[in-house]
């Protein structure tokens, strides 16, 4: 781990403690979802950003984690901690089984294959009613407890979720700054080139797929106990796209970027949700044929536009944009080598 990352982790830990004690319930609840999505988005950033394998079915692993822990704790009375461990193991194991054939696919065929896998998992969650409770899911998922202390409110879960998030960030940073991380980045550049260097390509691809699924499984397990309830709507293709957007907004190949992206997208969506009815009223007054209250998830439009604009104009995401800015500033004092220097410094 680099020095700046260690400082970042320490700073984040301080921020978490301060926010945990000062913020109120509804704000903490929003941050809890930021934390859950960030854990999954970091996994996706390892897979898509570093290794270049874009998954459009990541919500499936999130869902597998949630249902695994929820089922084991409600039906078999397992401790939530064991349920959480099982959630991670189940997501990782299914990723290994699915990844073996699926990761043979390249580029957009892999994206489409994972999309197919995600849809199949959603159908199973909806239709295997005897086990999953069907479209309405099931509740009564128990809370975590530490000895006699039970986790009850948003604040308890905020500390729990963000503690896991800190650990996940530390693990991910360690991974990307290691030999494995360098191999993954090389994979994105050229699988053939990496293979000619004697690296067993598929082992690394499968490995990072399993790790990213395990992160999503962890987030899913935490989600199930936090909400005390699971249903398939929380794990659809839409959520997969949201996760990808978060990773992309922050900057696909950046661990910190995934956290920033998760926070930015969540906060933006909740803002838009509040503001959109006003826009709709204006539209309705302008053209009466347009319904006044269309219902449904109106924030969709802003979400789609955001995803589009980011990918067109800022493909490196927020992290990429910041890096470019820093590099430009660093290059400014010496204009004679500035252009050549910045070109050489950006291998991507």
């Amino acid at each position: 781990m680099r020095r700046v990352d260690r400082l970042g982790l320490a700073a984040l830990a301080v921020v978490v403690v301060v926010l945990g004690w000062t913020l109120g319930g509804s704000q903490l609840s929003l941050l809890n979802f930021v934390g859950l999505f960030a854990i999954s988005a970091i996994g996706l950033s390892l897979l898509a950003g570093y290794a270049g394998q874009v998954s459009l079915g990541h919500a499936a692993f999130y869902g597998i984690g949630a249902y695994t822990s929820a089922l084991l704790t409600t039906r078999l009375g397992l401790s939530p901690w064991l349920g959480l461990a099982a959630a991670i193991v189940a997501s990782a194991a299914i990723a290994a089984a699915v990844g073996l054939p699926l990761l043979q696919l390249r580029g957009h065929y892999l994206s489409i294959g994972t999309l197919g896998f995600g849809v199949i998992v959603t159908v199973i969650l909806n239709e295997w009613t005897g086990v999953t409770g069907g479209p309405s899911g099931f509740g009564g998922v128990p809370d975590f407890a530490l000895g006699a202390y039970g986790f009850r409110n948003d604040r308890d879960y905020f500390f729990l979720i963000w503690a896991f998030l800190l650990a996940v960030i530390a693990l991910a940073l360690n991974l990307v700054n290691s030999r494995v991380g360098r191999i993954l980045r090389a994979l994105r550049g050229s699988e053939v080139a990496v293979a000619t260097l004697g690296v067993p390509v598929w082992r690394y691809k499968l490995g990072v797929f399993v790790v990213s699924a395990a992160y999503a499984g962890l987030a899913g397990g935490l989600y199930a106990h936090y909400l005390r309830f699971v249903n398939p709507a929380a794990f659809t293709l839409r959520v997969s796209v949201e996760l990808l957007t978060m990773a992309a907004v922050g900057g696909l190949a950046s661990v910190w970027g995934a956290l920033v992206g998760a926070a930015a997208v969540q906060l933006l969506i909740s803002q838009i949700r509040d503001q959109l009815p006003r826009l709709q009223e204006g539209l309705h007054r302008l053209i009466p044929a347009i319904p006044e209250r269309p219902g449904g998830e109106q924030e969709l439009i802003a979400f789609g536009l955001l995803l589009m604009l980011i990918m067109i104009y800022l493909p490196g995401g927020i992290a990429g944009g910041v890096n470019t800015l820093l590099r430009r500033r660093a290059a400014r004092p010496d204009p004679t080598i500035g252009a050549a220097g910045s070109a050489a410094a950006s291998p991507e």
Partner: peptide, 14 residues
């Protein structure tokens, strides 16, 4: 994907 979500959102508004 962004285009598709945005078009769906626009249709929802209309």
């Amino acid at each position: 994907i962004g285009v598709s979500i945005a078009l769906r959102g626009a249709a929802l508004l209309l």
